[in-house]
Design a protein around this nucleic acid. Structure first.
Length: 708
DNA sequence: CAGAGCGTCTTCCGC
DNA sequence: AGACGCTCTG
């Protein structure tokens, strides 16, 4: 079986990596530290299986976390062994979509079902709740409540729980089951699934249809999972359904990099893997090829404060490298200015500026635009989430799936045709009562529509008829072109561009060219729609000028940069306090997740690491005092250089003990800015409180033990 | 039914 | 500070 000599790609591996590549048989857990050559191991393993072990590539399934990672994995595997091109490499969600489409009829869906994003989900939920609980959710906080419900529903799906299951661990809201049920019914009727459904319904499909399960688990003899630390319970179930004792399963992950708890990731999956799959072999990859010694020391010293971990020790053959730079600044404008100063060395392409929340990019963008520093912002406003793009696509979505309520409402209402809520409700009612799709229902309801609505609806429906006739013959690019011109969207957006100085028309042109790569007919269109709904990053591959990268920490997963600047290292920002109240400190689990996030951020750096903390920051349009992140204390002082001084604020954070010459010892209970004057309220030992301006009143910081 | 004007509440992270 | 949704008016 095995060819005469080892292929060259095995020779460059270290012994642990080699062991992981060659292993076969029992379940395998690879604990791969940051920068330990994880992707290389997986791709080599794939290549080895198809190239040396003569596995049929179609028997191998590799699951990644992002489409970008999937793409990269395939490229690298193919570079090692061309046969790997046939291996199925997908994200969990994309695999779910594949499985559901092939078996759509078994679960009462058209194979052309559409995957809805959060916006679509919210609007579906709105209609569902309106029918179900009239008047219930119409208050001023209706939107907030819908979001809350949707959040719970998503979490339920992450756990594979349906509306009839016990949901009390998620929310005690008594309406949740009913809202969930109504929402699911709406999704089904509308021919939609959401992200959670892609996994949950796949699990159900396999559980309810033994013959499908048998077929699938016989096909995929080898299942590889990357980023296993971020899998959720539903994904675990899916894996469990695919698993068969005669199959080979291998998961790769790093519990220290588990950063998606907020959307249902379950660290227990990786922590318990060896118990769940008896006979598991565990291999640790601890040699780091990315970062200098000092950077690894910082990372290790931070993450060792976490209790929930399996533990590993990263090491490197590189030297200590440069010291870590820690910077105290006044506010986010100074933060941006400091970064621009660092960039005077011209290292645009080698530098990434990391932040916890997307909106933090603003101060950098403003300044960099002014200074003409080239930058790219990773992962904001996706192209297909733009209003005009969604508008045009709604017509095509509706062609493929004429039950799609969201797309129907969007398309018939944009541009304005005089069809409003009333007319729409009539059409929906006809569709429901007569069991016809929305386009057919529209025609039936035409007679009963009054006034402006009638003419508009008729015009719209005849356009859809015309497009429908061409659906199977025309290329998607031609169809969308026709949609844009004949629907009136072109005129609509030309006027708006003129009025607002925007460039939405050019986005529509971009849409046409994006579609031009897809083949004619339903299949091509359907493939395009799936690609855009599951693809997060659409980076321009023709990008050549070196640019600074502005990116959230979450988005840096799997990336590395020569120089990394982590900004906003302040209590409440990083670690983020999610509660609305200032006092909503994170619990231990949340804090550990934030710490892992910080760990991920640090380990993105190859050579240089800069940590920035500001004394004040504008949040929600209000200037707020900030306290340096607790994480900064966890980086060893002996490998850091400190720039800038601690401000008055940092020396006297909220809650610290202070001494006043006259009044004695007390504690700071409030802080705010009065104009440019920093003010505090101190509660003294005798129980009395007093207000001071820090510029005029000397307060000495003391340890709390001194007086309490 | 559509657009203007106004009040609200917000924004973590993302497949 | 800005987006969004709701209300009011033509």
């Amino acid at each position: 079986m095995v060819k005469g000599s080892d292929p060259s790609y095995l020779k460059s591996l270290n012994s642990r990596q080699l062991e992981a590549v060659l292993h076969y048989g029992s379940p395998l857990l690879i604990l791969a530290g940051a920068g330990s050559g994880k992707t290389r191991v997986i791709t080599t393993k794939i290549a080895y299986l198809v190239d040396q072990q003569q596995f049929d590539p179609r028997c191998i399934l590799a699951v990644t976390f992002t489409n970008k990672a999937a793409k990269e994995m395939k490229q690298r595997a193919v570079a090692l062994a061309p046969e790997a091109g046939e291996v199925m490499i997908r994200t969990f969600h994309s695999f779910g979509a594949w499985l559901l489409r092939r078996n759509a009829s078994l679960i009462g869906l058209s194979p052309y079902f559409t995957i809805c994003d959060e916006q679509d989900s919210l609007s579906l939920l709105k209609s569902a709740v309106k029918d179900k609980l009239p008047g219930e959710l119409t208050g001023s906080d209706a939107r907030r409540q819908r979001k809350e419900f949707l959040h719970c529903i998503n979490r339920a799906k992450d756990c594979c729980l349906g509306p009839d299951d016990d949901l009390r661990s998620l929310s005690h809201h008594e309406d949740l089951p009913e809202v969930y049920r109504a929402y699911q019914r709406y999704l089904q009727r509308s021919g939609n699934v959401d992200f959670g459904d892609l996994i949950m319904r796949s699990v159900q499909l396999l559980q309810d249809n033994p013959e499908v399960k048998k077929r699938i688990s016989q096909r995929f003899r080898v299942v590889l999972v990357d980023e296993y630390q971020d899998s959720n319970i539903a994904q675990f179930h899916l894996l469990d359904e695919l698993y068969d004792k005669s199959n080979y399963i291998c998961v790769v992950g790093d519990e220290d990099q588990s950063i998606y708890r907020f959307r249902g990731a379950e660290m227990e999956n990786i922590l318990n893997f060896d118990r769940t799959f008896p006979g598991t072999m565990v291999i640790r990859l601890e040699e780091n090829y990315r970062s200098t010694g000092n950077i690894l020391a910082a990372a290790g010293s931070v993450v060792k404060n976490n209790r929930r971990r399996l533990g590993k020790n990263l090491w490197t053959r590189k030297g200590e490298g440069a010291r870590i730079l820690m910077v105290h600044l006044e506010d986010q404008e100074h933060e941006a200015r400091f970064c621009s100063d660092l960039l005077k060395d011209g290292g645009y392409g080698n530098t990434a500026i990391l932040y916890r929340m997307n909106f933090q990019s603003r101060s950098f963008e403003t300044l960099f635009n002014r200074l003409e520093i080239p930058y790219r912002v990773v992962g904001t406003l996706r192209f297909y989430e733009r209003e005009e793009v969604k508008d045009a696509l709604a017509y095509l979505v509706l062609l493929l799936n004429p039950n799609n309520i969201v797309a129907f409402a969007r398309a018939i209402g944009k541009p304005r045709r005089g069809v409003g809520e009333k007319s729409l409700d009539k059409i929906k009612a006809v569709s429901r009562d007569h069991g016809m799709d929305l386009l057919a229902a529209g025609k039936t309801a035409l007679d009963s529509l009054r006034g402006r609505g009638a003419g508009g609806a008729e015009q719209f429906l005849s356009l859809m008829d015309h497009l429908g006739e061409r659906l199977d013959k025309s290329k998607p690019a031609l169809l969308i072109k026709e949609v844009i011109t004949k629907s009136g969207l072109y005129d609509h957006y030309r006027e708006r561009d003129l009025a607002e100085g925007s460039s939405r028309l050019s986005n529509l042109e971009e849409l046409v060219s994006a579609l031009s790569e897809y083949p004619a007919g339903r299949e091509g269109l359907s493939r395009y729609l799936e690609d855009i709904s599951l693809n997060s990053s659409d980076e321009d591959p023709y990008e050549t000028t070196p640019r600074v990268t502005l990116i959230t920490v979450h988005n840096t997963k799997g990336l590395e940069f020569e120089r990394v600047i982590i900004t906003g290292l302040e209590e409440g920002v990083f670690p983020l306090y999610s509660g609305l109240e200032e006092s909503a400190f994170p619990d231990e689990e949340e804090l550990e997740e934030e710490r892992r996030l910080f760990y991920v951020a640090i380990t993105r750096a190859r050579e240089r690491l800069v940590l920035i903390t500001c004394a004040t920051r504008k949040i929600f349009g209000r200037e707020r005092w900030q306290t340096p992140s607790v994480f900064l204390d966890e980086v060893p002082a002996e490998i850091m250089d400190v720039y800038g001084q601690k401000s008055v604020e940092e020396e006297l954070p909220l809650g610290c003990g202070v001494f006043h010459e006259q009044y004695g010892s007390g504690i700071i209970t409030r802080k705010w800015m009065q104009g440019s004057e920093p003010m505090v309220v101190v509660r003294f030992e005798n129980g009395r409180s007093a207000r001071f301006c820090l510029n005029y009143t000397p307060l000495e910081r003391i340890a709390m033990d001194d007086w309490s």
